[in-house]
């Protein structure tokens, strides 16, 4: 196929497949590099896993025995390959601190994190779209300015301040509506404990909406000042049709990319929210494991977060790639 040849449907698909292939290969390479980096970094941390397990009372003999048992004296490359071999067969190893399988420890954590993120996005995405459209169409009005000011103010608050404000307002001091602490009861599905998700969820929704809606608003305003929008109006097309046909497709792209970024970032990055509400997510599991030098858990948690990050980026890019209107550099 030469560049001058007209693009057939097949060629476009072929291009997309090779694009996807390249992206997959790059992601895999990134993943391998991440595992190596994490492995090296955990080994560079000051402190000793054996000492953290046995505590201040440990004798030199018991420390040496435990180190040998944990293969801490083996060369780094051997420890790494042993771990990778396990990961390849789906075995993430044992948590040295809890003495349970890493997978058993992290699965409920991951479920908790994903439930919270998905639920919060389910609320904030439609809300951001509605708010973005509504304010863009009234750009410069008092209402628009108020919402904009409020969103910037909320976004400027550190997460823990926002979290604490919500706790004070809705849980401990003003109204006693929701549990202040979101530690989930084990053995019960997350969805049966929705009351505990309200405050951390609300905190995330506020942070997400205030950011997302501004993207939508900016994109809508951008479209509304474009020539094709004015042309469509002059043609006398109904407002709803213009919105659906012209504004939405253009305004949704930055929002989709942002949603993907928020999702990917939140998996490991909502540690602060998890801490404020004592919510048992994967981010706080990771920070705890770093503190106790539970290296198998650290490695597995970072790996999981990285995989989710890469997958979500890939999906977002593919999605954005396919919905970008031709006029903005997308395919026909």
């Amino acid at each position: 196929m030469t560049s001058a040849a007209p693009q057939t449907g097949l060629a476009v698909r072929g291009k997309s497949v090779s694009w996807l292939g390249k992206r997959l290969a790059a992601s895999l390479l990134t993943l391998v590099l991440i595992t190596m980096l994490v492995f090296a970094a955990t080994r560079l941390l000051p402190g000793d896993m054996a000492l953290m397990i046995l505590g201040k009372d440990a004798t030199a003999e018991s420390l040496a025995a435990l180190r040998a048992q944990l293969h801490l004296e083996d060369p780094l490359w051997r420890q790494y390959t042993a771990w990778i071999a396990g990961v390849a067969t789906g075995d993430l190893g044992y948590s040295v601190i809890s003495r349970v399988e890493v997978a058993a420890l992290l699965t409920p954590r991951l479920q908790a994190t994903l439930s919270l993120i998905v639920l919060s996005l389910a609320v904030s995405v439609p809300l951001a779209l509605v708010l973005g459209f509504a304010t863009a169409r009234r750009e410069g009005s008092v209402g628009d300015k108020l919402v904009l000011f409020g969103s910037v103010a909320i976004n400027a608050l550190p997460e823990f301040v926002l979290g604490m404000l919500l706790v004070i307002l809705l849980s401990t001091n003003i109204w006693h509506l929701f549990p202040a602490v979101s530690s989930l009861s084990p053995g019960q599905p997350v969805l049966h404990q929705l009351d505990k998700l309200v405050l951390p969820g609300l905190c995330l929704v506020l942070l997400q909406v205030t950011y997302l809606y501004r993207l939508v608003r900016a994109a809508v305003i951008d479209v509304m000042t474009s020539e094709y929008f004015h042309f469509a109006r002059l043609k006398g097309l109904p407002e709803g049709l213009i919105l659906r046909r012209h504004v939405l497709p253009n305004a949704i792209v930055p929002a989709v990319i942002a949603i993907g970024t928020i999702f990917a970032y939140s998996v490991g990055g909502m540690v602060v929210v998890e801490t404020v509400f004592s919510y048992p997510g994967i981010g706080s599991a990771l920070t705890q494991a770093v503190g106790t030098r539970d290296l198998p858990v650290v490695q597995a948690a970072v790996l999981i977060i990285a995989v989710i990050f890469l997958i979500s980026n890939l999906v977002t890019d593919a999605l954005a790639h396919s919905i970008t209107p031709p006029g903005k550099g997308g395919q026909k």
């Binding site: 706790v167 849980s171 401990t172 006693h176 549990p179 202040a180 602490v181 530690s183 004592s278 705890q288």
Partner: peptide, 13 residues
């Protein structure tokens, strides 16, 4: 509850 503030909040709430 590992966080001190969170445990106080749980008591308050």
């Amino acid at each position: 509850i590992s966080d001190e503030t969170a445990s106080i909040n749980a008591l308050r709430g």
